[in-house]
């Protein structure tokens, strides 16, 4: 038989262990992120100083000033990086928009209407969502080179749209299925056409799904690297991942700028993840488990 005090001790120990575990998880999660932020404002000489110094003795915002051209003496790299932010916003924004428009309409047909070849087409859409980008790199590159489309962001928009579209169809198909059919029946009795039902009833009801899919699509395009690497060979067409990668590969290694550009490149996805967390979680899980 356990005494009351020993049970109490056991309970306290369990609580302490619980909080200890939470702290470890937090350190593991936030540590690298905070280190990136700290490194971005660490004076250059302290970064490359041997020894065991951990925290910087001073704070410098010089790198942010260089990136945003505040001191008027932006380096070539900084200019390319600044341009890449704009390029990434355009590429991710436009390809997300196209994918949502075409994908959400197609997904409705997949989820509600009967037609020949539905299953096969749905599988094709899923396959292209899962296909590694490397698989299509060579044909894209040759097609792009022959038509003179290498080095333009429009090419990236077209390629990204293809991949994101497959994802949108796949997830929205699952999302529509969770909307009760009664809603539509009512609209149909009122004399709406199929498309009318889709536009007036389904689209407003599925709004949270659009937010989820939109945020995730944007993040996917924002993150895309391989195609951007191959197709944005001119300075004016580079996207953020390519510009960020060049701080460590092309011009030698500049850890300070690597971290600063990293912070800047992370801000938009971080805000998206924080504000749309609930939607994103549902977008990640609903598409994955439901057919």
């Amino acid at each position: 038989m356990k005494t009351r005090t020993s049970r109490k001790i056991k309970k306290t120990a369990a609580t302490v262990l619980l909080y200890l575990a939470v702290i470890i998880v937090l350190l593991w999660t936030m540590g690298p992120l905070l280190w990136m932020a700290v490194s971005s404002i660490m004076p250059g000489r302290e970064m490359l100083e041997s020894g065991t110094r951990i925290l910087p003795s001073a704070v410098t915002l010089e790198r942010y000033a260089v990136i945003f051209g505040i001191d008027g003496q932006a380096t070539q790299q900084a200019l390319v990086f600044r341009r890449s932010i704009l390029n990434s916003v355009i590429v991710a924004g436009v390809s997300t928009l196209f994918s949502i428009v075409f994908g959400s309409v197609a997904a409705y047909a997949f989820s509600r209407l009967m037609f020949k070849g539905k299953k096969a087409l749905l599988f094709v859409a899923m396959f292209f969502q899962l296909l590694p980008p490397i698989s299509l790199l060579v044909p894209y590159y040759i097609m792009g080179s022959r038509t003179g489309m290498v080095g333009h962001i429009i090419t990236l928009i077209i390629i990204d749209t293809n991949f994101i579209l497959a994802y949108v169809i796949w997830v929205m198909n699952g999302y529509y299925k969770s909307i009760p059919r009664d809603l539509e029946e009512a609209g149909r009795i009122d004399g709406c056409t199929r498309f009318g039902v889709f536009w007036r009833i389904i689209v407003p009801t599925a709004a949270p799904g659009f937010v989820a899919v939109g945020a995730l699509s944007f993040l996917m395009a924002w993150d895309e690297f391989l195609y951007a690497l191959v197709f944005s060979q001119s300075d004016s067409a580079k996207t953020i991942p390519v510009a960020v990668s060049e701080f460590s590969t092309k011009y030698g290694v500049d850890y300070g700028m690597m971290m600063t550009s990293g912070v800047v490149a992370t801000i938009i996805p971080l805000l998206l993840a924080l504000f749309f967390q609930r939607y994103i979680v549902s977008g990640l899980t609903s598409g994955a488990v439901k057919e």
């Binding site: 999660t29 936030m30 690298p32 992120l33 990136m36 993040l219 924002w222 993150d223 690297f225 953020i240 991942p241 390519v242 960020v244 990668s245 550009s261 990293g262 490149a265 992370t266 996805p269 971080l270 998206l272 993840a273 924080l274 967390q277 994103i280 979680v281």
Partner: peptide, 10 residues
């Protein structure tokens, strides 16, 4: 969720 928001290259 935050680490997942960090772009792969970053």
């Amino acid at each position: 969720l935050l680490p997942w928001a960090v772009p792969t290259i970053v």
